[in-house]
Design a protein around this nucleic acid. Structure first.
Lengths: 199, 199, 199, 199
DNA sequence: TATGAATGAGTTTTCATTCAT
DNA sequence: CATGAATGAAAACTCATTCAT
């Protein structure tokens, strides 16, 4: 029913990121998003079914790009350590360059609303699988101990990155998120990577 | 102005945990909390300044107990590994036994509302410091490598536990959260602990 | 859930009759009804579930009184002609004295909204049955020809009265509705009544 | 300003009958009518001034045909009873064959909106006059008692037919409206007609 | 003539909070 | 201390209508 492409679609998504970041999802007014996007209130509903749909679409669009970027960066690499390093730096770089998007991601998306939880789960699952596959690949290549539970390792990797980003978002002092890539990678590597066995 | 103790205070807090867990903070109605607590709507405002105050007070009360329990469990222990193990198991046990509280903690408290963020930060900071101190103690005792950034290590420890709890809360399959204490501890220990140097 | 009695309930009903009569149901604003009733907007929803519920409740309340009045007026009478005469005059007198109520009855209640149609049907059915029973009583007593279909006769009686009231409501010239009781009764009687047979 | 003829004009009228019958006038969407008529939303406004204008035009068009049909059927007849019989059967046949049109006529047109009431009154007046003239003709010819008020008689005739049609429209059971022509005519005739005097 | 994307005014309903009892 | 009836501000969403193409 609704048109999910076009200049105005993008303008609304971008305005929504700003407004959600500033006031939070529940307090954000659709009319404010419309104004910031330079369209009429009603126009929003030509492109989105509801306010909730804006949040979900926003996340799916941005998260899709996010994952694709990371996927392309590790594509072709052989070394799992190198790949993990790129995941961490990609994660931090992308959110670090878009603080507002990061605020939405870290804060606003953690909502109990069933519709929101539902709309978010799919892209998150993809990202989770990307990380888990990386761990398993490491185990096959002997770079990650075989007794590590891949799912648990993924939770550690993601949980650590997520917490670092949340701290950064919450922090009033402004520091470069990307600068944490190296130390965070080293910390994770220490617990997950080992010299390749059999070499 | 408001009275912050008494039987009804506790009843309201407990009702609020249930209602927030079920419907989410924003959709929760104060009148519903009052009904479940067995008091009149107006009575809520004899004990709390606002709906937001309920959420914050709830968190502060429960988080205070949470931290105190953990603190008492690691008190007197010498070995930092043992202490970390107790932190992890205490974290999982407490939230695992109170899924509704965990839902509020993991989901509802992630709100952009400035007042909420403010009210939450203090207790969280205490917990963060407890963990950071543990890491530093490990470094002094030679159990944690000196080149580890304590703050970063804390983010990894907390982030990992937090992600595990969130997964558990989100999961529809019901499994025992506490059962993950051991493997999570081992995973974290692998990255953070070393044989005590100089012994 | 809602409280269906009290001073304010009546005030809202009465205000609603006026506002519906003036602007029509769909164009009537709940806030206007509230203002005219001297209550806050929200108060309306302590007594009624929705705007539609106001219309339906209004009709049920007023129609209940309407029928009861007519029923009590023909109670105890023996002659069916006399009874019919009282029905007609009661019908005209009651609506004639409350032009606003008549406007709502004749115009606003003819709505396709299923909820409204539903809420109206019960009281109307009672009135219809009262009239049909009267016709049947006339047949038993030999005052109404046996070959008359009671349901059809009711449609003629009600349809005629209804059309007369509608004409009166629509008319800008103001004349006394009740003055039409006599001629309308005579017209109906001519077609329905006969000298009592067997006497 | 607007063009009131053409293939699309008719298509819009016909679509409007269906949509109004299905959802009611107020809930009917112009865009839905446009879609069902196979034209663009904007095109509707090349043929009609407003949504209200659609309803009124629809009624005027259909009611004009309605009256014309009846007029032609009684044209040339001598006997007033025969004429009345044709009016009743024509009324029922035409609405009975177009239930959707009947729904609009019986339900949707009873609106308080002044513009609608205004637009409807003219064609109705014509129909009313046709019936009244019939009664007066009967009086001249001695077939209708002289003391009958022609206007009142018209209200009885129309009111009875109208009520029968409304019952039929509201009824979920499907029966042939036209089958009621005979008994309704007989009922009306009993009250209005007499053996021709002076013969 | 015809289109359909865009507009933006307009309204019901919810619910946190108050305060007279 | 406790009550709960009353308040009224606030906002998502719809849809008749317009107008550039």
């Amino acid at each position: 029913m609704v048109k999910r492409t076009g200049e105005k679609y993008d303008a609304i998504i971008d305005a929504a990121v700003r407004v959600f970041a500033e006031t939070g999802y529940h307090r954000a007014q659709v009319s404010r998003i419309a104004r910031e996007a330079g369209v009429a209130d009603g126009t929003v509903y030509l492109y989105f079914e509801s306010k909730e749909d804006i949040l979900i679409s926003l996340f799916q669009t941005k998260m899709g790009e996010f994952i694709e970027t990371i996927r392309s960066e590790i594509e072709g690499l052989e070394d799992v350590g190198e790949k993990l390093s790129r995941v961490v730096s990609g994660h931090f770089r992308q959110l670090g360059n878009h603080r507002e998007l990061a605020m939405v991601t870290q804060i606003e998306l953690r909502q109990a609303d069933p519709g929101i939880a539902q709309g978010i789960s799919q892209p998150m699952k993809q990202y989770f699988e990307l990380i888990e596959d990386l761990v398993r690949e490491g185990q096959v290549k002997g770079q990650v101990p075989a007794d590590v539970d891949a799912r648990l390792a993924r939770k550690m990797i993601f949980g650590t990155m997520d917490e670092v980003v949340t701290s950064w978002v919450m922090s009033s002092r402004i520091y470069a998120l990307e600068g944490l890539s190296e130390p965070v990678f080293r910390l994770l590597a220490r617990g997950l990577l080992q010299a390749k066995t059999g070499e």
